[in-house]
Amino acid sequence: MARSGGATGAGARGPQAEERAGSGGLFRRIVIGVPFLWLVLLFLVPFLIVFKISLSQVAVAMPPYIPTFGDPSTWWSALQQFSLDNYAWIAGDQLYLDAYILSLVIAATSTLLTLLIAYPLAYGMAKAPSAWRTTLLMLVILPFWTSFLIRVYAWIAILKPEGLFNQLLLFLGLIDQPLVILNTPVAIFIGIVYSYLPFMTLPIYASLERMDHSLIEAAADLGSPPLKAFWKITFPLSLPGVVAGCFLVFIPAAGEFVIPDLLGGSRTLMIGKTVWLEFFTNRDWPVASAVAVVLVAILVVPIAILQRQQEREG
């Protein structure tokens, strides 16, 4: 809304014209209504069902939980069967707690590692000659278009004991026994950093590129050496990009399934995999739902922060 400066009122324009438009009424209702109903039906309602099932009991039936709401006359008694047993079960079992903590720790660590790699990359891109920038930007985005699964898969061949990385180290004589990297948290870090690098690089690049270069010149002119100018001027101004990037990596990483499953082995049990196992292997849909609800409850705060920040930026 910066365009109008608000004071001329142009910022708050328009709606009257729309609302008065009689002929646009039906069309307008369709444009709003169809996607709205779709999202309610296929995003909101499913999530409420997850919540409902998290309060149910497991049963040997199809669907494998009770109560179900078939005959309206039994609804009241069905409602009385709801309980918090699944949540108590999760809280009581160290396995789940460990999985949550491990997920958050791994997500936080890999977010930090991604930042450490993405920031210099974004900085290098922003400082590159402007003729290069479009190309560099495309080079960062290009791998993002190729399959996520393929990118994770590529690392297996590199990291496994007889893989290319170990072969290289053996060849160079740096080690005399292959390192065990695959099926450890290190492999998960590599996988997450690799897969989410563009999500961190792009917002940081955007905030660095937008920055007025004369600010740095002004700092230098006022006697600030380059490193100090970076730390006092560039870095604070790029913070919105850093924050957005961190959340864009942290949130999905915390619920990540494919990377820990393929690179982390069976011993590192993150929460995304726990949901998967409860659902597909144990067929305990109520517990799987409860685990999912708790994960969403944990992620609600960072999601809300990210959304507010995006709105302010947009």
């Binding site: 400066g5 004071a7 001329t8 009122g9 324009r13 009257q16 014209a17």
Partner: peptide, 18 residues
């Protein structure tokens, strides 16, 4: 000057604001 309401007046005449 900008913000004095002149544009709003014009936009009301055009029908973009009521």
């Amino acid at each position: 000057a900008s913000g004095c309401g002149k544009s709003t007046l014009l936009r009301m005449l055009a029908g973009f604001e009521a």
